[in-house]
Design a protein around this nucleic acid. Sequence first.
DNA 1: ATGAAAGCGCTAACAT
DNA 2: ATGTTAGCGCTTTCAT
Lengths: 332, 332
Amino acid sequence: MASSRERRATAPTSQDVARLAGVSQSTVSYVLTGSRPISEATRERVEDAIAKLGYHPNSGARTLRSRRSGVIGLMVPEADGDDGALMTFVGSIAREARRHGYDILLVTAQEGAEGIRRVVRTGVCEALILMELDRIDERVPPVLESGLPFVTLGKPEEFPQGSVVDLDFEMLGRMVVERAIEEECDRLLLFGDPGRKRARNDVSRFLRGVEDVAQEAELEVVMDGGALAEVPARALRMTLPNQRTAMFGLSGVRQVLFAMAATRALVDDTRLLITLSGADLVDVSPLLAAVPQLDPRRVEISELAVRELVRLLRTDGASPRITLVEPRWIEG
Amino acid sequence: MASSRERRATAPTSQDVARLAGVSQSTVSYVLTGSRPISEATRERVEDAIAKLGYHPNSGARTLRSRRSGVIGLMVPEADGDDGALMTFVGSIAREARRHGYDILLVTAQEGAEGIRRVVRTGVCEALILMELDRIDERVPPVLESGLPFVTLGKPEEFPQGSVVDLDFEMLGRMVVERAIEEECDRLLLFGDPGRKRARNDVSRFLRGVEDVAQEAELEVVMDGGALAEVPARALRMTLPNQRTAMFGLSGVRQVLFAMAATRALVDDTRLLITLSGADLVDVSPLLAAVPQLDPRRVEISELAVRELVRLLRTDGASPRITLVEPRWIEG
DNA sequence: ATGAAAGCGCTAACAT
DNA sequence: ATGTTAGCGCTTTCAT
C-alpha cells in the first residue's frame, strides 16, 4: 500500500502563535500565564491568533518548565462488585477539578505505596486525593514524604499534614439510633459486618456514634456478620412478639433489600429498615422507614475536596482543614 | 515564622543516576528505554544507582521529548445515579492500563468535543478510550482529526478508524427471546424505555436481536416506557389468566426489583424476570429465572479494550479491529 | 510594555 | 558498547 498522506498533524506551538500575532514567543506565554501586564492591543492579537490556530500549550513542556502538571492524582479503591457510589465520587471530582483547570489521573489502590511514589517522583501529579484509606495505610508515608498537598476523602484518626473531607459518620450513627428509638424499636441490627470492619475509620466513627446514644437508651445493638442474603431471616428470628427491629447497614443495602423480597420476608410491623443509600431507593417506600439521602452529599463531599485541594495549591503555606458534611434524612 | 526547613525535596534526575553509576547521562536513558544494547555490567551499575536513588524519569521531560505521555484518556459518561457497572469498567481499565505501563486520565462526557480537543492538543494523552458514544457524537470528529489511536467501548454503526470492543448485544437480544420462549412465556416486557433509547447503539442492536427471533416465534414484545416503579403492576395487568410474561431490562433492573418487592407483586407463575446484571443478584433466586452474568464480561471487555489500544500503539500501521464479547447465562 | 535567551530533564541522532 | 550533543516547547529572568 502506498502512503496516501501523513498520519498526525503536529500541533501548533506558542512560536506559531507569536509569528501570527507579530509578537515574541515569550509574550504569548505571558498572555497565557498572566504573570505580567500586557497591553490590551497585544493581548487581543495574541488571543485571536490562539483562537485561529486552535492552540493549546504543550503539557509536557509546561510541566517540565513550571513543575506544575495541572494533574491531580485520585487514589481509588478496588470496586468491589456493584458500588455505584464510588463512581458518583469519581465523576464529581473530575468535573469539579476541570472547573478549576485540573485533570484527574487514576491511581488504583492495587498499585499501593509504589504507585504513589511513582506518580509523585515522575511529576505527573502535583496533588493527590486519597479515597478509602485504612487506619494504617502504606500509601500515606510516600504521600507525606512527597510534600505534595493532599486531601483525604474519609477521615483518618489524625492527619495534620493534609486536609480531610468526609461525611460526619458519628452524627450518622447518632441519627440512626435516635431514629430507631423514635420508631419504637427494641433492637438495632447492623448488617454488613460492621464489627469486623471496625478497622475502617468511617465504620469505627459510625459505631462510636451509635454506641454513644444506644448506651443511655434501651436499645440493643446487634452487629450481624453473616451472609447478607440471610439478614432478613435472622432479623425475624431475633424479634420476639410485640417487638420491633430496626435494620441498618453502611453497605449491602441493596442485597438486603433483594433478600427481603426473595425470602418473601418483607418489612412489616416487626421490622424497620433504615438505610443509607442513593436517590434510587426513595421510591421503595413500603420497605423503608427513612433513607439518609447521601447521593447529594457525595457530590458535595467531592466538590469540597477538590476546592480544598485547590486552596492548598494556590495559597502558599495554607494549613490543612477538616470538613465534615452532615447527613440528612429523606423520608420514604 | 522562621523557615525551619525547605518544603519539597527535588527528585533525582538521570544526571544524578549517571554520576552515581559512573556513566554518561544518555546511557542511563538507553538503559531505561532499551533502545540500544547495553553491556550487562553497565546495565547493572545503572540499575543499582536507580534503585539506590529511587529514581523515576521525569514525565514532563520524557513526554516533551518523545511525544509519548504514557497516558490514555478515558472518556467517561455522566454517572446517572447508582451505576456500579461503570466503576467496574473504569477500575478494570485503569488496572489493565498500568499493567502495560500506561496511566488513565479521566475526561468527563461533560467536557464534550472541546475536552477531547484539549487533551489531544496539549499532548496529555497519546490514545483514547471512548465510553458510551451516541450514534452521532460530537466528540468523534476531534478524535479522528487527532489521528490518535482509540478504542470504543460500545459499538457504533461504522467505525473503520478506531477499534471497537463491546458485548454482543444482538446475541443478547436473541438469547433473551429464546429464553422467554423456553420458559413458555407469551409476552416479553422490555422495561427501561428501550423504544425511546433506540438512538443508543447498544439498545438498537439489542432490539434488532430481539426482533429477529421474536418475529418468527409467537412472542409478543412490549416496550415499556413508563416509571420503573410501576413496571411490575403493569406486567401483572397485561397478563391474562394462564399466561406468562417475561420481563427484561438493559437498565433499571434493581429499581424494578425494588418495586416488585415494594408492591408485594412478586414473581409467580405468571411472571418471569430475566435480568441483566452483576453477580450480586445471583442470590436472589426466587425472583429471577436467569441472569446473564455480565460483571466478568465487563472486566473482560475493559481488558480487551486496553490490550487492543496497546496493540494499536505498539504496532505501527495496525488496522482497527472489532471484538464482540459473548454474553453468558448464569442460572439463578 | 515587550523581547532575547537560558534551561527544565529527557530521547535519539550522530559521533567514535 | 558508550559518549556528546541538539533540541522538544514552554516559563521566567534579565534586558531594554
